[in-house]
Amino acid sequence: MSRRGPYYVMVVPAVLIFFVFHTVPVLQGVFYSFTDSPGYGPFELVGLRNYVALFGDPRVLHAYWFTFLIAGVSTVAVNVVSLTIAVWLNSRIAWRTTLRGIYFVPNILAILIVGYIFNYLFSNSLPALGERLGIGRLSTSLLTDSSTAWLGIVILAVWQAAAFNIIIYIAGLQTVPVDLYEASAIDGASPWRQFRSITFPMIAGFFTINMVLSLKSFLQIFDHIVALTGGGPGTDTESVALLIYKGGFQGGEYGYQSANSVVFFVVIVTLSIVQLRFLQKRETSV
């Protein structure tokens, strides 16, 4: 009985705050997805009309395709880069702690500020360097061409997200017994063989965590695109999150984009569950 007081004091306020600022807005969003609300003034219930219209809207379909492209490429790239750096850092004795701190810095910085810096690099510094070197492809900004703008977004996303993944992988690498490497070295195993047969199977759980979190994060990509392209040229680099924001808060499509957000939520949850179960099964077979 004496412990119930502190328990309720700590838990009840947290639950109430979560319910008011998270659960209630989510339920309101679901309700508005069945209306034609522009975000203000009167509205009417329209049933499933918004959901049906989503599947025939070219702009929405393109946003989903572009989001899946960015999320897929970035998830693979960030895990390859992060695991490579983590393995290298784990093998370094000198400056190990300092290097970990340096590599974690991108995760601390505000992505909008970093994005504007990358925007300047892609739009000014890189073209100037391309002109001096006589490289035609680099003499113009990556962000002005729809065929290359997505690459700039991927570069920024991977650079910023790698910091967190590196820390997770380093934590996993530290759980691998050194004796296994020593025994394999005596048997003549190459570094690649050690990685494939010892390192990766031992950190498979950490790989699963990073893959799931990376995909979920990249599917919700927003700040990177705002800072680099704003969704342009035209709407070629418009992600689902950016489309929901533009249409819902700036385009008078609050009800329509609320339906889009509900569908997007279901997509993210479904992909995360499928990915998690697939990778967990793979852990047992590695």
Results as ranks from 00 to 15, higher is better:
Val9His: 02
Val9Ser: 05
Met10Thr: 05
Met10Phe: 15
Val12Asn: 04
Ala14Gly: 10
Ile17Ala: 10
Ile17Gly: 01
Ile17Cys: 03
Phe18Cys: 04
Phe18Arg: 04
Phe18Ile: 09
Phe19His: 00
Phe19Tyr: 03
Phe19Lys: 00
Val20His: 07
Val20Pro: 01
His22Lys: 11
Thr23Leu: 14
Thr23Met: 11
Val24Thr: 06
Val24Cys: 10
Pro25Ser: 08
Pro25Tyr: 05
Pro25Lys: 08
Val26Ser: 10
Val26Ala: 11
Val26Met: 12
Leu27Lys: 05
Gln28Val: 08
Gln28Glu: 05
Gly29Gln: 08
Gly29Thr: 09
Gly29Ser: 08
Val30Ala: 12
Val30Leu: 13
Phe31Trp: 15
Tyr32Asn: 09
Ser33Pro: 05
Ser33Ile: 09
Phe34Val: 08
Thr35Leu: 07
Pro38His: 14
Gly39Leu: 14
Tyr40Pro: 00
Gly41Arg: 11
Pro42Val: 13
Leu45Ser: 03
Val46Ala: 06
Val46Tyr: 13
Gly47Ser: 07
Gly47Tyr: 12
Leu48His: 05
Leu48Asn: 07
Leu48Trp: 15
Leu48Pro: 02
Leu48Thr: 14
Arg49Cys: 01
Tyr51Ala: 09
Tyr51Gly: 07
Tyr51Met: 05
Val52Pro: 00
Gly56Glu: 15
Asp57Ala: 12
Asp57Cys: 10
Asp57Ile: 13
Asp57Pro: 03
Arg59Asn: 09
Val60Asp: 01
Leu61Lys: 10
His62Tyr: 08
His62Leu: 10
Trp65Gln: 08
Phe66His: 12
Phe66Thr: 13
Phe68Gly: 07
Ile70Lys: 10
Ile70Glu: 04
Ala71Glu: 05
Ala71Tyr: 10
Gly72Leu: 15
Gly72His: 15
Ser74Trp: 08
Ala77Asn: 06
Ala77Ser: 14
Ala77Met: 14
Val78Arg: 08
Asn79Arg: 08
Val80Asp: 01
Val81Ser: 02
Leu83Ile: 10
Thr84Trp: 01
Ile85Gly: 03
Ala86Arg: 03
Val87Ser: 02
Val87Gln: 09
Val87Cys: 04
Leu89Trp: 05
Asn90Gly: 04
Asn90Arg: 06
Asn90Thr: 03
Arg92Trp: 02
Ala94Trp: 13
Ala94Gly: 04
Ala94Tyr: 14
Arg96Ser: 13
Thr97Pro: 00
Thr98Arg: 01
Leu99His: 07
Arg100Gln: 13
Ile102Cys: 03
Ile102Gln: 02
Tyr103Glu: 04
Phe104Glu: 01
Val105Met: 10
Pro106His: 14
Asn107Ile: 02
Ile108Gly: 03
Ile108Thr: 07
Ile108Pro: 00
Leu109Ala: 11
Ala110Tyr: 00
Ile111Leu: 10
Ile111Pro: 05
Ile111Trp: 13
Ile111Gly: 01
Ile113Lys: 00
Val114Trp: 04
Gly115Gln: 12
Gly115Glu: 09
Gly115Cys: 11
Tyr116Lys: 08
Ile117Gly: 05
Ile117Asn: 01
Phe118Gln: 04
Asn119Lys: 12
Tyr120His: 12
Tyr120Asp: 03
Leu121Met: 15
Phe122Pro: 01
Phe122Leu: 06
Ser123Lys: 14
Ser125Asn: 02
Leu126Trp: 11
Pro127His: 15
Ala128His: 14
Leu129Ser: 06
Leu129Cys: 05
Glu131His: 11
Arg132Trp: 10
Arg132Asp: 01
Arg132Thr: 13
Arg132Lys: 12
Leu133Val: 15
Ile135Val: 15
Gly136Gln: 08
